[in-house]
Design a protein around this nucleic acid. Structure first.
Lengths: 188, 188
DNA sequence: AATAGTTAATTGGTCTGACCACTCTTATGA
DNA sequence: TCATAAGAGTGGTCAGACCAATTAACTATT
């Protein structure tokens, strides 16, 4: 018995296909709900189920009277919502923290910074107008960018977003300077 | 003008309320779609839009003919979907391989295997009926499971799936035995 | 010709009701 | 007693209608 594929799943696949094969990029307008339903030979309500779902994920944005648009992936909505459901499950939180640290440790070890980049990072740490969360975020974004792997950055960012909404772990200021010191030792 | 609150958002709130105030827990059966629509004075189609959305997030599970049930929150589904959108933009093979190796190296270093698990892994390597891809896959799945982090496993699995479709890098047999040897050194 | 105002077309938002497919309960009959 | 059938409940899908908001096209006035 093969698992029946729900129609709204097909619609999801179709939209992914549009992005992959037809080269849709963030900001582009997707076909209208009515057109998609014709295109996929399904009811409009089924199309809407799919669209509402990925809207909640922050992948698309809909404006009444205008249309449906691809967003520059913002995970926040989904993250917030998931967090509100998941918050009490500490098990997930631990896994998330661990996974995030795996990536952070990796990038701290393997990134090769220019003098300029290093100075830029220190500047972030010194900036008094930034909150701890912002510092943490920018600190690692700079490292990840130096590391030159967009994919790792994206994955880390995703985890960071989740983490932000679930946990309030504060890294002591010293953590970052230790990280840099460790980095300096590495390059010798 | 204040942002209109979409009906399916209200439904989301209602379900959160059920969980928070009425004490619904994973495994519980939610009210039926029809009952929810009466309860909230909305159309069933609107209820469905909300349910489909949080189904995609992995918060609920629906079984035709039975009903809708709260799941033991698996965020991984959402992660998977988000990642699949993110990955389409960064389809750089090198990045993917590097990211995958970060996870693999981590798990090789930090997993703590029982004698039993170690034997199980060696058995996989000896099994002549398995292709190289299958060996690689099972080898690391066992390590990840020993490492006890479902999230990392899911992320790795995702990268592995993508990798399978893009690349045919073959790991020499020796790679795995070296990995085990290195693991043995670590635990001393 | 330029501009303001009106109208029509398009698109998302919501609702109603119907029918199918599947599961479980209950009643029926051998 | 137990297998079978019928019914009720539930999710899955469809079709069509109307509302609400935006955009584009058209018209009339200046």
């Amino acid at each position: 018995m093969s698992e029946r594929i729900k129609v709204y799943q097909q619609v999801l696949n179709e939209i992914q296909r549009l992005i992959k094969e037809d080269g849709y990029i963030p900001g582009d307008k997707l076909p209208s709900e009515r057109q998609l339903s014709v295109q996929l030979n399904t009811a409009r309500s089924s199309v809407r189920e799919a669209l509402r779902a990925i809207e909640l994920l922050g992948i698309i944005e809909t404006r009444q009277g205008e249309g449906t648009y691809l967003r520059d992936y913002q995970t926040y909505q989904a993250v917030q919502l998931l967090a509100s459901f998941v918050l009490q499950n500490t098990h997930v939180l631990e896994e998330l923290q661990q996974a995030k640290q795996v990536l952070e440790n990796h990038v701290l070890q393997s990134a090769r910074l220019t003098e300029e980049q290093l100075e830029q990072i220190k500047e972030v740490l010194r900036d008094p107008s930034l909150s701890n969360e912002e510092k943490h975020h920018r600190f690692f974004v700079l490292f990840f960018e130096a590391n030159n792997n967009q994919l790792l950055l994206q994955v880390w960012r995703l985890m960071q977003d989740f983490s932000d909404n679930m946990d309030q772990t504060i890294y002591p200021e010293q953590y970052y300077y230790d990280a840099i010191k460790k980095y300096n030792e590495t390059i010798e």
